[in-house]
Design a protein around this nucleic acid. Structure first.
Lengths: 151, 151
DNA sequence: ACGGAATAGTTGACACGTCACCTAAGTTGC
DNA sequence: GCAACTTAGGTGACGTGTCAACTATTCCGT
């Protein structure tokens, strides 16, 4: 399963270099555009998407965290900050005294509606431009495998 | 060039979800292992690699930044912190009174020597396991295209 | 050779993410 | 029905990255 030599092949190394470079550059570019368009950060955007896609438009903090692949404390911090800016509301969970629902406010809805088209277009133009469906499939499966290995 | 519809195809969306999830989870996993093995962060590691690969084992702050795809101020902050921990040294540039060389100290060399094998192995096992050379090539070209578009 | 523009690098304030630890509420075993 | 354990969530401290503004040096046109 794991080879004796720990090093990467030249091609793997090239791919990895690109990955590392993108790890900071791509989020930064997306953040800038979102900030400009709607005052949202990339993380804000992901939170809002997760919530608007949830069955009743609401999630518990822990479920939100795991649906985003975040740590609980990060999620807690971020929800507090977004609530402070009026994008989210937090209400007590009736059945479980420990839980708390997170809901999107009208301002949150407005913000994501303003942000979504430009964001989707930028992602498509930056990441998927000139990628054939077959290549997208390879990419999707490669990334999915890593996600599974980390999960 | 740019289609009218801003949205992503389902496959693109899947790939993008994975990408977003990995954007935090993978650096976190690598950071944890590096921290454990050698007390380095992922950024520390990248800085040390860039420097040890440079012609004379030294780079100016700006060149280091651009070779990592970082902003200058981030690089400046990070170099200062690493110098404070004894991993790097900063010396004045003779020819250009504005410049400053960044050099790896012995402690920095020792740290990266300790860190490298485990790091490379983890990257290979997490990212490249079960990826054929052809798939690595697709990945490498796809990522490279994004890097070029952002550059 | 001098004055303005570009360049190298730094700094401080702020938002973010992680870690270790904490509280409160539910769960389980006896 | 109570004590031990687990789970949901929050908190404070700390290191990191971005942005805007700053200083110091070099370049360049006239």
């Amino acid at each position: 399963m794991t080879d004796d030599e720990p090093w990467l092949s030249p091609d793997q190394q090239r791919a990895w270099r690109h990955w590392v470079a993108l790890g900071t550059a791509l989020p930064t570019a997306l953040n800038r555009q979102l900030q400009e368009d709607s005052g949202l950060s990339l993380s804000d955007y992901d939170v809002l998407v997760a919530l608007t896609e949830a069955p009743d438009g609401r999630l518990r903090v822990g479920d939100l965290a795991s649906s985003l692949g975040w740590e609980r404390s990060r999620c807690s911090h971020h929800v507090r900050r977004m609530a402070g800016r009026g994008l989210l509301d937090k209400t007590d969970h009736a059945d479980d005294g420990r839980g708390a629902w997170v809901v999107v406010t009208d301002a949150g809805c407005a913000a994501i509606d303003r942000a979504a088209p430009g964001h989707a277009r930028l992602v498509r133009d930056l990441v998927f431009a000139d990628l054939s469906p077959a290549e997208v499939d390879v990419l999707q499966r490669a990334l999915g495998a890593v996600v599974r290995r980390l999960g």
